[in-house]
């Protein structure tokens, strides 16, 4: 078996009558970071939210084409969406820790998966906070509210919360767009580290960020995939004129 995780073939997507994605073909490879870039409204977030079927929550949406996760179509009727979302975690644009303690935020997903033993819970809380590079900052106040953390810390807590349930893939929807440069740098560093254990798909508005953290980049424009290639290729020698204009900042 090759190292393909997601294989998207001729993916089309509609919000009611308006089409958001047109015949998109993308391959997401294991332990590689894939960045989705493009101007606002180009469909990159829509695509991301197809991968864990978050779009199911929006009324009157329609999907056509296939998204295979290790050869299994995620939109097949027999697929358990709950199971899918455990395997494919997500971090959102606006950090959304629950109004609970730091420890309970991470324990939330674990408890849902049936982990209730106190020892195991605290071990896994520590492990995921360490992985998210947050442990040293919060280890003395695990019982305090997560809402008291700074924006960057909150976002790293959300990453810790997502990886606590040990997903295979981590989807990130503009995870740094609400953060200052220092917090952004920390998260980018974290994304590089996490690559060893997880397959990451990241949507970003920030071209430098895509260049820094990703191995593959997909450029979208008006719902169509314009170019998909190794990041170095996209940023140094793109095949398409539109891609070149976008990554060099001539439009977008």
């Amino acid at each position: 078996m090759d190292n393909t995780v997601f294989e998207l073939t001729k993916l089309n997507f509609w919000y009611g009558p308006s089409q958001a994605l047109y015949d998109v073909d993308v391959t997401i490879r294991r332990n590689q970071n894939t960045a989705l870039i493009g101007p606002s409204g180009c469909g990159k977030s829509t695509l991301l939210r197809c991968l864990n079927r978050m779009n199911d929550l929006i009324e009157r949406t329609r999907v056509q084409g296939s998204i295979m996760l290790h050869g299994q179509d995620v939109y097949a009727p027999e697929v358990d969406v709950i199971e899918l979302r455990k395997r494919v975690g997500m971090v959102f644009q606006k950090s959304n820790p629950f109004p609970k303690s730091i420890a309970d935020n991470i324990a939330y997903g674990l408890r849902i998966q049936g982990v209730t033993a106190k020892g195991e819970l605290s071990d896994r809380i520590e492990a995921s906070l360490r992985k998210a590079a947050l442990w040293d900052e919060v280890k003395d106040r695990l019982q305090e509210s997560a809402m008291a953390l700074s924006g960057g810390q909150q976002q790293r807590l959300c990453i810790a919360r997502a990886i606590a349930v040990e997903p295979e893939v981590l989807l990130m929807d503009e995870p740094c767009s609400a953060l200052d440069p220092v917090a952004t740098a920390k998260i980018e560093e974290l994304i590089q580290d996490l690559k060893k254990e997880y397959t990451i798909v990241i949507v970003t508005h920030n071209m430098q960020q895509a260049a820094r953290v990703s191995d593959y980049t997909a450029f979208f424009y008006l719902g169509k995939l314009v170019e998909f290639d190794a990041t170095t290729k996209i940023f140094t020698n793109p095949a398409n004129k539109q891609t070149e204009d976008y990554v060099t900042g001539r439009f977008g």
Partner: peptide
Amino acid sequence: VPNGFREGSLALGATKLETIRKVVLPQ
């Protein structure tokens, strides 16, 4: 109750019922 809480919970593999009971209702 902000939608972000619901999405955050569902994205962790919680069912709708768990999300309502543990995240939405307390809020």
